[in-house]
């Protein structure tokens, strides 16, 4: 029997609400807002309250896939990265850098988002970078 309340930060928007993930024998079963967090003081929005749900969602992608003829096929990281890089290069050469846009995520770390904008601006050459939290 192991019940843990793991203190963490809500993975959705940039507010950074403090939450406890209730983990019963390794399975996340509930999100509880932290009352000690100065950000949310025991309160959450509906996304925060369900922050644990996507972890166990059957729709979640856990490995790389390539879409071929409308269907997702499992593929290796090398394969998907090579494909993505070559297609991005092709599109940029044919239509120019501003034909490409990047969508970052509040679910990622600051560092990951920094790297994505770096890729957009320095490697591709576009300022078309936005994020999912622009609601």
């Amino acid at each position: 029997m192991q019940l843990k309340h793991v203190l963490t930060i809500c993975p959705y928007c940039g507010c950074g609400c403090g939450i406890y993930l209730e983990v019963l024998d390794g399975e996340i079963i509930r999100t509880i807002p932290s009352k000690t967090s100065p950000v949310n003081q025991g309160r959450l929005c509906i996304k925060g309250w369900s922050a644990h749900e996507f972890v166990v969602s059957p729709k979640r992608l856990k490995r790389p896939y390539l879409r071929k003829q409308e269907k997702l096929h499992e593929a290796s990281w090398d394969e998907v990265l090579d494909f993505t890089a070559s297609r991005l290069r092709e599109i940029r050469e044919k239509h120019g850098p501003d034909s490409i846009a990047f969508l970052a995520s509040a679910k990622c770390t600051n560092e990951e988002n920094y790297l994505l904008q770096k890729l957009a601006r320095a490697a591709i050459g576009t300022n078309n970078i936005d994020h999912c939290a622009r609601l």
């Binding site: 029997m1 192991q2 406890y20 009352k35 000690t36 967090s37």
Partner: peptide, 12 residues
């Protein structure tokens, strides 16, 4: 209370 934060805890 752990690291200044108070939360539920199951003591075994």
């Amino acid at each position: 209370e752990e690291n200044g934060q108070i939360g539920p805890y199951l003591f075994t």
